[in-house]
Design a protein around this nucleic acid. Structure first.
Lengths: 338, 338
DNA sequence: TGTTAGCACTCGGTGAGTTTGAGTGCTAAT
DNA sequence: ATTAGCACTCAAACTCACCGAGTGCTAACA
């Protein structure tokens, strides 16, 4: 049996209708809904075929049909191919008043959630490959030094270092010189034990102090602080099929914990550019078995990227979501590249 | 009609029992449950009185009784008075490995939620009255200066300032001297327009540059970035009486938005030290009409404080919650004062 | 006078039986 | 190849009787 054009049209009609109503859709509905001018009986025959092909299922005998995961998949794939060119803008407007990255990201998540009525999540970008621009040690008070670390792209981190013995100003000055000349321009990965040993050796006399500081710096840099922000978690209550306490609770828990979802978003290695769609059981995550998830990647500059995702019911308006994601990605790119 | 000791005991028994089961409790249960050795009939009479006093209510004729908001209130007040002295420790152990305030606070919220099985929230402390310890300007690259601001208590903030014209090293040095001598030791409130004008006047020649920097500094300090972290939001699904989508959705939305809840926590002005309890409709917030909320204040040092709160069902184990809050406050005090 | 036993009454919850209606599959006619 | 017609299915909604926990009241009791 083959997938005639008519069958595809019927499948599409079934999915569209189901997206709207959330109810199983019957032959009569389709017969009226489409412009194919076919009777419900004919539709029934076709539906029977579609079911045999595994694209739609009946929740129980004598109920209408709903799309299966495979059905959605086909639909999404079709969509993606079609919508490649036409691009009606969906208004997504990031207000970049604040320069702070995390504020922008949080706002982006919120925007996305509000625009789509699904839950959204977004991660901070990964800086693994950034180079150290410079490093500055300052004496704050007799017991504390402040280490300020500036990375390429003007990412600033700081760390208070409690020191065991007071030092005076010119030592701090020399420390700065030493550390900067040794570390400047290095990749975070390159600042490893070897280098640290070498610096300690070079620092005639201040070995202990230098050690303390380097440890602190390494620790600060090591804090891989990828964060994930979520928004619109409560949107899921808008969809009756997720709105039972069992499912909602699991899903919300996953959104609160974020860890698993974040991992999932980063797991699809190859597909770094472009949009990834998980439909129902395609997701390895228990909590999202009854949902669909659409993820995308935004790019800051070469090699530095973060992820955006949307979670909603299986009957998600994939068209709109993909649209919204693309717009947002574009806007993020613009703002972040400044 | 008076509140005899016996009535109090019965009320207490009713509440205790209801806290456990979540079901309306009947006279027979109390008759067995307490050591008063009274028949159910007697209990019924007493319960009838308690109902007349507005301390308990029947959800419908021929059902057991459940505590009213007033009943809970009485119970909580009794509890608070009694438990003033005895203090069995509840294990609350903050792992202070990271020095970063927000990490500690997030962990505190999580801990609290896990220990109590309710939802928790915590705000970052307010620094309004902190003094400027010192300020440092560093040249990062030809177009950018980095302003680092250290406040009392070693709170570090930083801000990148894009400058219109490049400057050389000794100008930066003089800037540092000027700004520090003018601003050091000042309260954030004291750094106002007047002072800024005066500094600009003093900065013969660099007026424009100084202006840019001061604006940036003021902006950074002005960013009153009180944040609220929540945890354990999904715990509310554990309580059937909150576990209907209408209520849960509202509550979770409030927890996601945080704004209203934060305002509420800070609204009780006078009660700055100590623990505040809102039972059901006592709260002005629509979203928590079916919940109880217990809030407490933790103190960093004079005048600097933040809030912790717990949200759960009306039948919250107030005893445990108050206990947990007190322990956590104590622990926070210790860690944060370092 | 306070406590108790007994009894009639109330009402939410449960479960069995019934009805309804949307939807299907099959067959025969077009 | 399409359609009209019809018998069949089954979840959802509704009805109804019954159960039992719990009450209020009254009368008896210590």
């Amino acid at each position: 049996m083959d997938l005639s054009d008519r069958k595809l049209k019927i499948l599409q009609a079934i999915i569209r209708n189901y997206l709207e109503t959330g109810e199983p859709v019957g032959s009569r509905t389709i017969s009226k809904f489409t412009d194919l001018n076919l009777s419900s009986a004919t539709i029934r025959n076709e539906m029977s075929d579609l079911e045999e092909l595994g694209l739609i299922v009946q929740p129980h005998t004598s109920a209408g049909r709903i799309p299966s995961d495979r059905g959605y998949r086909l639909y999404v794939d079709m969509l993606m191919r079609e919508k490649q060119e036409e691009m009606e803008q969906l208004q997504v407007e990031l207000n970049a008043k604040s320069q702070k990255l995390d504020t922008i990201l949080k706002e982006a998540a919120k925007l996305l959630a509000n625009n789509t009525n699904y839950a959204s999540l977004i991660t901070t970008p990964q800086y693994r490959t950034r180079r150290l621009k410079f490093l500055q040690i300052t004496q704050v008070d007799p017991e504390n030094l402040l280490a300020i670390i500036v990375l390429e792209g003007n990412i600033v981190k700081n760390k208070m270092v409690a020191i065991s013995t007071p030092v005076d100003a010119d030592v701090v000055l020399r420390l700065n010189l030493l550390l900067n000349s040794s570390l400047q321009g290095l990749d975070l990965k390159e600042i490893n034990l070897g280098i640290i040993q070498k610096i300690k050796a070079d620092s005639s006399g201040y070995g202990l102090l230098v050690g303390e500081i380097l440890d602190a710096v390494a620790e600060t840099l090591g804090e891989e602080e990828m964060q994930t922000y979520t928004s619109g978690a409560t949107n899921i209550f808008k969809y009756p099929e997720l709105n039972d306490s069992e499912k909602a609770s699991h899903l919300l828990y996953a959104l609160e914990e974020k860890k698993q979802l974040t991992e999932l978003m980063y797991s699809e290695g190859d597909n770094e550019r472009g949009i990834q769609v998980y439909i129902g059981n395609e997701s390895p995550l228990e909590a999202t078995k009854d949902c669909s998830m659409v993820t995308a990647t935004y790019h800051l500059e070469d090699g530095v990227y973060g992820k955006i995702g949307i979670i909603g019911p299986r009957r998600m308006d994939y068209e709109k979501v993909v649209q919204a994601l693309q717009n947002l990605m574009q806007e993020l790119d613009e703002i972040l590249k400044k």
